[in-house]
Amino acid sequence: MTISFNINGQPTSLDVDGDTPLLWVVRDMLDLKGTKFGCGKAACGACTLHVDGKAIRSCSYAVKYAEGKNITTIEGLSNGDQLHPVQQAWMEEIVPQCGYCQPGFMMATAALLSEIPNPTDEDINNNIVNVCRCATYYRMRKAIHRAADIQSQNAKNQPS
């Protein structure tokens, strides 16, 4: 079937089996490799991206649901060269180690901050349940709080 959606702002049309996981479409057909395969069972969160601004685990999301939607992957999280506050915070705290799970975490965090701009530690515990084997959780928590600060600072600086 033909499926059309916007990905990172680009209109895209594909001829694909509608039951194909969105993850494989993004990685293998659109060559956006920042979104990772971890388990294929929606258990680890490495494949997290945004569909209409919401966090979605794309390994378990059939591409047919994406029809007419706006998809954002880690490659589209920044605004051109201007990194997203989550990415800026990740840089400041030097979070990544192996880096494999980090795009999923950053996408989940960006989705969290768009719903809860100033998350408490408990909000972070309840919302961010992805798996990181290097166990960079300590810096991630700091980076999430830092990202919230950067985001609110940006909001203040924006002309209303």
Binding site: E75, L83, Q87, I94, P96, G99, Y100
Partner: peptide, 21 residues
């Protein structure tokens, strides 16, 4: 010194084995 792979790993750029084609 910040990790040399930091920026790449924050923008989803580095190639892992599974990203090769």
């Amino acid at each position: 010194v910040p990790r040399v792979d930091l920026k790449d790993k924050v923008i989803g750029a580095p190639m892992f084995g599974m990203d090769a084609s």
